[in-house]
Amino acid sequence: MTAQSTDIATYNFAYLDEQTKRMIRRAILKGIAIPGYQVPFASREMPMPYGWGTGGVQVTASIIGPDDVLKVIDQGADDTTNAVSIRAFFKKVANVAVTTETAKATIIQTRHRIPEHPLTAGQVLVYQVPIPEPLRFLEPRETETRKMHALEEYGLMHVKLYEDIAKHGRIATTYAYPVKVEGRYVMDPSPTPKFDNPKMHRSPALQLFGAGREKRIYAVPPFTDVVSLDFEDHPFEIQTFDQPCALCGAENVYLDEVILDDHGGHMFVCSDTDYCEKRREEGHRGHLAPETDLASEKLEPAQ
């Protein structure tokens, strides 16, 4: 017997076999019916490493069809390498249309951000989740955390947040900030900055969460209450930035800090690249925006 290249590598539409898709689809339906509850599923090995979006990829592969338009972002950007890689994977195995425009996408797979452009009914936001259990850092045992969810026993989480306040004068959690869904389950929103938490609340889009290595799927249906945990005397608040985006001048968006030189020079730009480009196309200019038109900016730099 010899391994011939023709023997291997014929894959189903969207890579997963149909039985696997059915299993994931059933988990998704239960997740939607029990918002914020983590449904165990028999996650498969994917052709990319665990921790690199295998959960999100399995969810996307199970829901995607030939009519879908897919957008993939990582850190808010369509052109980060892992986003490029995942988008290329779906182009190859599902031959679907892809876009970078938030408004044109029917499925948006994301790591660490929610787009700035408001999502609409009919869109599905698929989150890549590394550690789905919001209580994991307080209690490493699944056997224990499962009990806490069953009994709605979330005192430990409040104690942790309150210790933060006692020690630092504020809640020192800046991303993966825990939320309560529809007044019942405490849920990890994936490591999005807490800036994005309010976008989850009563979003018109369906939000699906896939954690491949940890083998969990969960969901937030549209128009569902998603409330960030806080205290009356220390209400939840999001980060604010002192300056607008240096390229497009946008305010009230999440910004990345870009280091310009080694003398402490830096600038802040939109983390959502599509949002930033759209604004510049519309003529908005930040204080460091290049004078040249966008067309030349889109040229690829030397590798």
Binding site: P49, Y50, G51, W52, T54, D74, Q75, G76, T80, T81, N82, R111, H112, R113, P130, T174, Y175, A176, P191, T192, P193, R213, Y254, L255, D256, E257, S271
Partner: peptide, 15 residues
């Protein structure tokens, strides 16, 4: 996978 995923961009959270 999970150890090596730390080399993926995390700049949003780091910010």
């Amino acid at each position: 996978g999970f150890v090596e995923h730390l080399k993926l961009p995390h700049y949003v959270d780091f910010q």
